[in-house]
């Protein structure tokens, strides 16, 4: 786990290289290890998370937004929402904090190789999914067609806006964006819930893998749509969110049936959780 102390709970010191404002109350933090270790040795995979500690404030699980193909910094995209994230937003370039990890089962990159990949993100769900998206793009020749469907509630809340705008210039990724509401009439793309984007995509379910990350309400509708389109159940992967404390399957908070989101997930094949009532 990149932790040599033998104590799985031991946090490692990191500092902030820079903070990049995203949308209101959301920021991207670039981190540097301060204990002499490298991000290469850290060994994170797309879809994994870290436990972030701020002195005296506590510890919280945050997904990693950067791929292992970009090792200059570890990036975490954070919404200001509680005690720890409030303290994080008071920090700036050079501030010190701690992390431990990487934790959890990430996206199944080996399974995706050679196949078409449909990424479906809602809201802040793009934060973990971005690690996979950039990984796919950095190893573009290993994958077939890439389609990104991204929905937010309104045009002001599009994360990684400039990165996404850049995709307009690429012909090796198909991008479909939606907003639930567009009161000011400024949105040039689709207005409506993210499932509406399925009408704009030509999908071939049997050689495509669907990878989902979004708010709980999104899963039910997207799953229904994928299954009705004929996606085999074992072609659907989803990153689930749960309240986590320890990250190593001990504290019990993130249990889903007989699984723990922090160690068995956060990315689950749909086939593993479809029979667990409280999963989705």
């Amino acid at each position: 786990m990149g932790n040599n102390s033998g104590n799985a709970y031991q946090p490692r010191p990191v500092s902030i290289i820079r903070t990049l404002p995203q949308i209101n109350e959301h920021r991207l933090f670039q981190l540097k290890l301060e204990d002499g270790g490298s991000w290469e040795d850290f060994g994170h995979q797309p879809g994994q998370f870290v436990e972030v500690s701020i002195f005296g404030k506590g510890e919280a699980p945050i997904s990693i937004s950067s791929p292992p193909t970009r090792l200059d910094a570890l990036e975490i995209c954070v919404r200001r929402t509680g005690r720890l994230t409030n303290a994080l937003f008071d920090m700036e370039k050079g501030s010190h904090l701690h992390i431990r990890g990487p934790y959890g089962r990430g996206f199944p990159v080996e399974i995706l190789k050679g196949h078409k990949v449909l990424l479906i993100a809602g809201g802040l769900g793009l934060a973990p999914l971005r690690s996979l998206l950039l990984y796919l793009l950095d190893k573009r020749d290993k994958f077939d067609e890439i389609i990104l469907m991204y929905g937010t509630n309104n045009p002001d809340n599009v994360l990684f806006k400039y990165e996404l705008l850049g995709f307009f210039d690429r012909d090796d990724i198909k991008y479909l964006y939606s907003v639930d509401r567009d009161e000011e009439g400024i949105w040039k793309q689709y207005v409506g819930v993210v499932t509406g984007l399925f009408d704009q995509a030509e999908l071939s379910p049997h050689d495509t893998y669907a990878v989902l990350c979004g708010p709980p309400v999104m899963y039910k509708f997207v799953l229904e749509r994928l299954l009705s389109l004929g996606f085999p159940k074992d072609h659907i992967f989803m990153s689930l969110e749960r309240m986590m404390k320890c990250g190593i399957g001990k504290c019990g908070h993130c249990a889903i049936g007989d699984k723990y989101c922090c160690t068995d997930g956060p990315v689950f094949p749909f086939t593993e959780i479809e029979k667990i009532k409280e999963a989705i």
Partner: peptide, 22 residues
């Protein structure tokens, strides 16, 4: 065995990380 983890600042720059039953 479920537990929670909390940090307490005891004085500026010092504190404790505690775990307790949940």
């Amino acid at each position: 065995t479920c537990f929670t983890v909390s940090d307490f600042q005891t004085q500026p720059g010092e504190g404790l990380r505690v775990r307790s039953w949940d």
